[in-house]
Design a protein around this nucleic acid. Structure first.
Lengths: 156, 156
DNA sequence: ACATATATGTTATATAGCTACATATTTAAA
DNA sequence: TTTAAATATGTAGCTATATAACATATATGT
């Protein structure tokens, strides 16, 4: 008889490499170029527990005491956001890697903990429909959606 | 027999003075001080068709060619936002007066037209519930909610 | 190999928001 | 009604965030 399998605690490193592989595939499919800089920005976002500012990234991507030109980071971020690989959190002026968990589940929202700084990307069909109905009822064609809740997470 | 009454096109000026009176009452009730500066910031927001940046306000509130110190505007905005009289639009770094129409109807969302710059504050019970359920299901206690849709309004 | 499109480098600047501290005004208590 | 405390505003300087403009390099398709 088959045992119930307890889910293995997949390592963070493994999760990240899956995400990066996914990014590679997605870009290939879109004929978009995931250049070394863009890839390093995405990787840095994935490696971080919390959202990073553009200048944080600029510092992280250059050697000791130096920093990458901000515009370079912004250009990479613009690309990643266009591809749906990253998000900008407007309430923090900071950026996060997209969670694959919410891929194609429609409208995503972000829960931002003021205490620990963690951010989780969440969604629900109900939310998606509510937002959908709302803009339709006002004959509004949305291009971008921004849903952020700031407060305290379950732990804090 | 009573005629159907066509709704009178209440003048914009009249609507604004109603809003300002409402603000006075609300502040009195809260023992909060709607000082001249704060009142003028709120009035300027009401008079504008579109969201205003803090520096726009600083220019509008000072005579010809001069400008009010930015910090003064930020302090007034902070007050107005705390009182629920104004909102910050994070995707524009700009501010709008609250519409009384959405008072106490729970979660408000903003529809921001990229073509004409207009913003409308909207809400629906459905949206409110969806947001509510979403954060509850993640044991998240929200302090602030940010819902902004950017796109094209019915006219544009 | 060439022309074109795309990406990056470099420098400077625009825009948004805040810190720190001094002064003034209001509020409530003595 | 003077005084003390809280609240609001003034002034100067600064930090953080984001973009413009233009030059150079690299990739892509013919």
């Amino acid at each position: 008889m088959t045992q119930t399998v307890v889910q293995q605690p997949t390592s963070k490193a493994a999760l990240i490499s899956v995400s990066l592989a996914h990014a590679e595939n997605l870009c290939r499919a879109n004929r978009a170029r995931l250049t070394p800089i863009r890839r390093r920005v995405l990787e840095t976002l994935h490696n971080s527990n919390r959202p990073l500012g553009a200048y944080d990234l600029a510092a992280a991507l250059a050697p000791q005491g130096r920093r990458m030109a901000p515009i370079t980071v912004y250009r990479a971020l613009e690309f990643l956001i266009e591809q749906g690989l990253a998000h900008r959190l407007a309430s923090l002026n900071a950026y996060v890697a997209s969670s694959q968990a919410n891929d194609g589940r429609g409208t995503a929202a972000f829960l931002i903990c003021e205490a620990c700084g963690s951010v989780s990307e969440v969604s629900s069909p109900e939310l998606h429909d509510a937002v959908s109905n709302l803009h339709k009822s006002h004959s509004f064609s949305p291009r971008a959606r921004l849903l952020e809740l700031t407060g305290r997470c379950a732990h804090c």
